[in-house]
Structure formats: structure tokens, C-alpha cells
Amino acid sequence: MNFMKGTFKNPSCPQKRASSALLFLGSRLRGNDGKWVFRNILKMVFAATLSIATVVGAADPDAAIKSSFKAKNQAGLERLERSPMQAACSGPVGMTLPQAEAGKIQSAALAAVKFPADGKFLGNWEAGEKIAQTGTGMQYSDDPANPNGGNCYACHQLAPKEIAYGNLGPSLTGYGKQRGQSAEMLKYTWTRLWNSHAYNACSHMPRFGDAGILTEQQLKDVMALLFDPASPVNQ
């Protein structure tokens, strides 16, 4: 299996660049005194690799990851291969992407959003509340025969009567009541649920539609939880 292809494509990867340049140099210099030069070039490559390794602390997440995980149930090793967005958003805490890179991620996310085939954005808020309360789905410990949850309450406040809500994301209490149900607002919210990276390149929120976590019907039900005037979120 070819791991983390994307990271090696990253032109800012110093290890790859340094060694390939020196190897290139080595092949050019191997003329009269080929053996000697090449041996020295090899030494240089080795030294360069070592010095880079010292600078970055010899950290190679790709190699370590390859030997440190095993596939279990529905969680295969392919889950560790990062998309360009995931690789770009794996920087140190507090880092910001260059504007151009962020823009590229956002427009790619926006372009791939699938809106409901029948044009109807709102399902059943009661089903949506159940999805928002359910935290299981896609873990190797979960039965893939059961529908995935959305686990919205893990990070967001929604219905005010539910006191066990997290605060990694903003409060969504009163979401529809405050915003109304204009076509723009429905499309915007659907897009946020489908792939939040359309508006925030390194959003922490899972791509519920894009990554196939929730079905179209489940997304409609969560939309109803947010927008339906009868939903507890809007009481």
C-alpha cells in the first residue's frame, strides 16, 4: 500500500528535496573519478538526511503510522491516507494556511456539495434530534449495520432542554428562529453540514455529507431540527 502519497507531493518536504537534488548531482558528477565522487555524494546524502533528521527530530509520521496501526473491522488502514485538505490542515496548533491554499480547499469543497435531489431541504426534526443525540458511527467498535449518528450535542448546544451539550462548536439554539428559512439560508446550512470546509478551510467539523457519514435523508432530518419552528431547538 502506498501511504500518504499527498505528503510526498508536498514541495515543502525538505527531506525529499534535499536527497533527490544530491542524487541528481551525484549522477552528473560521476565522470572521471566516478566511484569516489559517488561515494562522497552518498556520504553527503547520508549527512544531509541526518542533519535534516536532526532538525526535524527524525520524525517521519508516515513510516511510524505504517507500523503502528492495524485494520480492525470497518476501520481499514486506508483511513490513514490523508486527502490534500487533511494534510494541509495537519499543521501545528494555531497555524493559518496561506490565503491561496485556503481558498483552493474551500472552493473544491463548495464545488462538490450535493444538494437534495428533490429540492426539499427539511425532513423530520424528531428523527433529527435522535441523530443529534447519537454518538456512534464508523468507529471500529460500531456495528456498521446501524445508521451512523451525527453526535451534534458532543460539540453544539441545540435544544435548550438538553443540558449535556459540548462547546467545541458554537451554540445553535434558536438557529431557525433567528435566521428564517430563505433559500440562501437553507443552502448555506446544508453546505455547512455537507462539508464545512467550504467556508472554513480547516474547520474542525466532520464532513457529514461529503464523507458519507450521514445519508441525504439524515441530513434533511438534522436540517429540520435546526429550522422547523416546532423543533425544540427553536422553542
Binding site: A154, G166, P206
Partner: peptide, 28 residues
């Protein structure tokens, strides 16, 4: 440190997703 920030999988989570801000909680 690199693995802590390593975002991958269908939910795009890294350790940092949940553990890089102060005064945050999942549910309670």
C-alpha cells in the same frame, strides 16, 4: 507532536481537534 496534529480518517479528526483548546468539553 506531528501525530497529535495528524488529521485523517472519515471524520478528519486529529488529537488536536478535541485537545488543543482550553475550557472545552464534549457533552459534559
Amino acid at each position: 507532536r506531528q501525530l497529535f496534529n495528524y488529521r485523517a480518517g472519515p471524520y478528519d479528526f486529529s488529537c488536536a481537534t478535541c485537545h488543543s483548546q482550553s475550557d472545552r468539553r464534549i457533552r459534559l
